[in-house]
């Protein structure tokens, strides 16, 4: 997973106009009083599934590629963000934000929620695992066996997620570097969920199955001042291998591209900056702007040359801070499905 949520989480504190006016200056602000990611840290489960309030930002992020009995593709997103209002780690000083979305042939539906810390309206518990905001929940007995529910004015989903393989640390043992200047986060994933459940759409209920990907990430200052947005992919390749990659775009036009190749047994292979290439090939008009919905992705080490194309190019999240997020189809040297997220367009 990437730094993507930082941008959105900041929305609580800044209005959209200001965020635009200030570029990403807000993300580069001082980390005084907050804990900083440490390369020596190693994850301990289930404690690390819970909240890390000594860090400024944190998220629980699930995307799933689903299909019904006819093979029609669907995608869902379930995200809970924590953002500290001030350092110190107090419950009352936390703000919570959540996004849920459902991409379908009939349209892209999304909803957004906010909550004050220590109110009882939102929170995360490591064991037994539960992350919730209002009536939306991601609840286990544990994080490998969870029920995921969320809804908006026009949609609802209720899904059961089960994983049989280990959690995958991203970057170097979970220490994920975001720029050449050294900004970083703690980051692990669970890309091996099998999913069954029900989507409720304006046209009625649909039974679906598929696969899901969870990202857990926390940090205090994950972006440099000049980074203007990102393009992020998480791919389920046929055969069981997974690929996570992102491209952080800089103001000067350059980009910082890294990622992780995850073997079907769960062994990660961190990619050095530049190993993975991502080039936009197809653009779409979405919400009055141009967004790249087709990508050319290569990874020479894995003989990977693929096209990553949005299934539903209009998967726009018109949330407080808007971004694009939706399911993709993979063709070329490898085939599969996945999720694409793009911000800063």
């Amino acid at each position: 997973m990437s730094v993507r949520a930082v941008f959105a989480a900041l929305a609580i504190w800044l209005t959209a106009t200001q965020a635009v006016a200030q570029g990403f200056a807000g993300l580069g602000q001082t980390t005084e009083g907050y804990a900083l990611p440490d390369p020596a840290t190693r994850f301990t489960y289930p404690a690390d599934h819970g909240s890390h309030p000594e860090f400024r930002i944190e998220w629980w992020y699930v995307t799933a590629n689903l299909q019904d009995a006819d093979g029609t593709p669907y995608g869902i997103q379930w995200t809970l963000f924590r953002n500290a209002i001030r350092p110190g780690g107090a419950e009352a000083d936390q703000g919570w934000m959540a996004h849920a979305a459902l991409s379908s042939p009939g349209g892209h539906y999304y909803a957004e929620r906010f909550a004050r810390g220590a109110s009882g309206q939102a929170g995360v518990m490591a064991e037994p695992f539960e992350a919730f905001i209002d009536e939306w929940q991601m609840a286990g007995p544990d994080l490998k066996t969870i029920r995921l529910t969320a809804q908006g004015t026009e949609f609802h989903y209720d899904l059961q997620l089960n994983a049989d393989r280990p959690f995958v640390p991203q970057g170097e043992g979970g220490f994920s570097v975001k720029s050449e200047a050294g900004q970083a986060s703690h980051y692990y994933s669970q890309p091996f969920y099998r999913v069954t459940g029900t989507l409720t759409l304006p046209d009625g209920a649909v039974e679906v199955t598929g696969q899901a990907w969870l990202d857990r990430e926390w940090s205090s200052q994950p972006l440099t001042e000049t980074q203007t947005g990102w393009d992020w992919i998480s791919l389920h390749l046929n055969g069981g291998d997974k690929l996570m990659g992102y491209r952080l775009r800089d103001r000067d036009g350059s980009a910082y591209t890294v990622g992780t190749w995850i073997n079907a047994d769960g062994t990660p292979e961190p990619l050095a900056p530049g190993q993975l290439t991502m080039n936009a090939t197809d653009w779409a008009d979405v919400a009055d702007r141009q967004v790249p919905v087709g990508w050319d992705v290569t990874l020479a080490e894995q003989a990977l040359e693929i096209n990553v194309d949005a299934v539903y190019p209009q998967s726009w999240m018109g949330t407080l801070i808007p971004y694009w997020e939706g399911p993709v189809r993979v063709t070329g040297s490898h085939e599969g499905v996945g999720y694409l997220e793009m911000s800063g367009y």
């Binding site: 504190w13 001030r86 909550a115």
Partner: peptide, 24 residues
């Protein structure tokens, strides 16, 4: 401010700047 309608009173009130001095 977390749950209030964004175009309501607080939307207006917080447009002028960051609200971390408002919270708490």
């Amino acid at each position: 401010p977390f749950t209030a309608p964004r175009d309501g009173a607080f939307g207006t009130a917080t447009e002028a700047g960051a609200i971390d001095d408002v919270l708490g």
